[in-house]
C-alpha cells in the first residue's frame, strides 16, 4: 500500500482517481488546488503525487518546482496528469523532475500501472518519522 496525493481542481477527476486508487489498495489524499499541495505533502508524506497543471492558486509546474527544491519532498515521484499537451509543457515538466507525464483524456489502467511502478511505500522511513518529534 502506498500513499498517493492527488492534486486536481476537478471534483470528477478526484472522485474517479480516488475510487480507482483506493480500489487498488492505495491510501489517497486529495488537494483541490495548487496552494494546498505543499502543505499536505509535509503533513502526510505521500509516496507519490499525481499533479494537474492548470490549477487555481498555484499552477502545477510551480508546485513541481517548489517540491523539487524542498529537501523533504524532492525524492517523491510526481506524475503530471493534465490537459496540456504541447511539446514545451511536456518537456518542461520532465526537465523540472516529473517522473511521468500523462495527457487527459487518459487510460485509467495505464495510470494505475504507472502508479504501481513508481510508488514505493517507504515503510522504514515512516517508522523513522514516527519516532521523530514534530
Amino acid at each position: 500500500m502506498a500513499r498517493v496525493l492527488i492534486a486536481d481542481d476537478d471534483p470528477l477527476l478526484r472522485g474517479l482517481l480516488q475510487h480507482k486508487l483506493a480500489g487498488d489498495g492505495h491510501l489517497v489524499i486529495v488537494a483541490e488546488d495548487g496552494g494546498e499541495v505543499l502543505g499536505l505533502i509535509r503533513e502526510h508524506h505521500p509516496d507519490l503525487v499525481v499533479l494537474d497543471a492548470m490549477m487555481p492558486v498555484m499552477d502545477g509546474f510551480e508546485v513541481l518546482r517548489r517540491l523539487k527544491v524542498d529537501p523533504q519532498a524532492s525524492s517523491i515521484p510526481v506524475i503530471m496528469l493534465t490537459a496540456l499537451r504541447r511539446e514545451a509543457d511536456v518537456v518542461g515538466a520532465l526537465q523540472l523532475g516529473a517522473a511521468d507525464y500523462l495527457v487527459k483524456p487518459f487510460i485509467p489502467d495505464e495510470l494505475l500501472e504507472r502508479v504501481r511502478r513508481l510508488a514505493v511505500p517507504q515503510q522504514v522511513q515512516d517508522d523513522d518519522r514516527a519516532r521523530r518529534p514534530r
Partner: peptide, 11 residues
C-alpha cells in the same frame, strides 16, 4: 504573479 501563472490558458 502566482495567480496569474495559474490562469487556465494553453499558451
Amino acid at each position: 504573479v502566482r495567480s496569474l501563472l495559474s490562469l487556465r490558458y494553453p499558451s
